[in-house]
Nucleic acid binder design. Sequence first.
DNA 1: TTCCGTGCAAATGATTTGCAGGACT
DNA 2: AGTCCTGCAAATCATTTGCACGGAA
Lengths: 157, 157
Amino acid sequence: MKKQDTSEQWESFMQNFILFLKGKDLKFTNQRKALALWVFNHHEHFTAEDLVIAFQSERWVSKATIYRTLSLLVEAGILVEENFNEGYKTYEFKFNRKHHDHLICQECGKVIEFENKEIEKLQEKVALEYGYILQSHTLKLFGLCSVCQRKGRPRRP
Amino acid sequence: MKKQDTSEQWESFMQNFILFLKGKDLKFTNQRKALALWVFNHHEHFTAEDLVIAFQSERWVSKATIYRTLSLLVEAGILVEENFNEGYKTYEFKFNRKHHDHLICQECGKVIEFENKEIEKLQEKVALEYGYILQSHTLKLFGLCSVCQRKGRPRRP
DNA sequence: TTCCGTGCAAATGATTTGCAGGACT
DNA sequence: AGTCCTGCAAATCATTTGCACGGAA
């Protein structure tokens, strides 16, 4: 919470990104810096379109660069791609955050992050039963949040 | 396995589809019947493209009708849509099949279906903790199957 | 200076839709 | 007969790419 912490995180974050770029002989441009700063400040889920709106309106970073940079950030392990529902990708800040899964309200779209060690253990067990080495997983729970439950019959007419 | 069983399943399946259509004042056309028959015989995962290839080549059902019918089959509860990986949808036969989750090999793409009651119970518990009413879920485990483990270092160069 | 990056617009690929003639009930 | 359907081609939507110029190293 202290300003100092955030600033340190930022340093470490940016260093990480710069090293990643160097390792691939890529340049640390103003656009990449600006986009990295934006994602650093938006830990919630967002889409490419969100970035387009934020940056294209100021005539600052083009759509093409946004998509190209998002791919880099995913490759660098800074973001993860999620396919929640519709025909577009959702991104989530991952750098230095521990793994979690999602609980999604089908009515309002609200997303809650949760972590459950017991479930993870059972997943390992299942993988073993089938002779798999588990590398990663995705768990999404879809339901109705407490607010939407109260709104009565929530289905479309 | 007995012929009789399959035939009975088919009757029940088709009746179900016809009733669904009637309920929405939709017609049971030859195209819809042909597509329903195809999915009934393809319980594995498939894509819209698979159907296009199967039917367009014989100049029998158009792409537009395939997409429109897939939506109907999902609405009827006969198919479920999955977003496994890339930029297209995968469909899976659901009618009269019990729920299951997936274990996917990242090397060869093999998909194993599994069911784990303990995990499902814990999911209910998690949803409750956050005040959600659970409606459905998706659990995907990604890993290496036993065959691919033996092939040595399986990463791309 | 030398690549690499960027912006633009055009290309792509999956899926959707408008329209006019055809097929169920 | 009256709807609902289908096929076609054109339209969308998110995302990708080719190309010529501009900017980091």
